[in-house]
């Protein structure tokens, strides 16, 4: 730009040349900045529907999964609370109304275990109840923002994974549920000391509305990562996704 001004002997000419060359470019830049930044944000609908924007946001979300895996400290515990702080009644929440909660037959029920595990036998409820149990009073945080404190009891999930001889270096643990819900989690969270295969709520057999016969309870994950009415568990290195995750909720989805 500067080399191109042949008459630039004195300052006035240079200034004038710079002014002329400079301003249209800057103005154009501003126009573009306003068009992109301002207009497209103001017309929020169209930019949200744009497929390339959606893809870019999905890519950032997958990068955020990696950032969160890196931030996750497997020994950091979620806070626990006294019984007096339990939220009563604990809210019902699902992607369907309460009258459509599945009715699972306890006697016929078998928990399927598959994928990268040594022992693939299907578990009865009494076999699971015979394993050492633990309980916790922790805060359930929903992706919508609200939270509630509840008390869950059951088999520490890390003990269950070790018992079935799961490949603990595998990347994912997936869940399939009686209400057609499905989700998956990372192995470090699956092995977290507070991750429970919950069989009870507040000292009672896990009620139907909270996920009978079992739910995976993780105080380090948002509600949608905590599957209810779990029927099948599989260990895999292939990304299994999830009901909400496939629609755009962040896969890691937790703290």
């Amino acid at each position: 730009m500067i080399k191109q001004s042949p008459l630039a002997g004195d300052d006035a000419v240079v200034k004038e040349a710079l002014r002329r060359l400079d301003h249209p470019a800057r103005r154009l830049f501003m126009q573009r900045a306003l068009t992109l930044g301002g207009l497209s944000l103001l017309t929020g609908c169209s930019i949200t529907d744009d497929e390339s924007v959606e893809n870019a946001l999905m890519k950032v979300s997958r990068l955020n999964d990696k950032a969160q895996a890196w931030l996750f400290d497997p020994n950091r515990l979620a806070p626990t609370y006294p019984e007096s702080m339990i939220t009563r009644p604990f809210p019902f929440n699902a992607f369907y109304d309460e009258d459509r909660v599945p009715d699972v037959d306890a006697d016929a029920f078998r928990l399927e275990v598959s994928g990268r595990v040594a022992d693939k036998h299907a578990w009865t409820l009494s076999e699971l109840r015979a394993m050492p149990q633990a309980d916790q009073i922790t805060r359930h945080i929903c992706v919508e923002g609200w939270s509630a404190i509840g008390k869950w009891g059951g088999v520490p999930f890390s003990a269950f994974l070790r018992r079935v001889g799961a490949d603990l270096n595998a990347r994912y643990v997936g869940f399939k549920c009686a209400d057609d819900y499905y989700t998956s989690i990372d192995m470090p969270t699956a092995l977290h000391p507070q991750t429970l295969l919950a069989l009870s709520y507040d000292g009672q057999t896990l009620p139907r509305r909270y996920g009978f016969p079992m739910k995976l309870r993780m105080p380090t994950k948002l509600g949608y990562k905590n599957p209810k009415h779990v029927q099948a568990i599989f260990v895999t290195n292939t990304y299994p996704g999830g009901y909400w995750e496939d629609q755009g909720y962040n896969w890691f989805g937790g703290s």
Binding site: A56, L57, M58, V143, W244
Partner: peptide, 20 residues
């Protein structure tokens, strides 16, 4: 009409991208 993202999941994606 004043918000960005179209639904909760979309809004969260915008929020967790723009935060960086």
């Amino acid at each position: 009409g004043l918000t960005l993202g179209g639904w909760l999941g979309g809004a969260l994606q915008w929020h967790f991208a723009a935060m960086w």
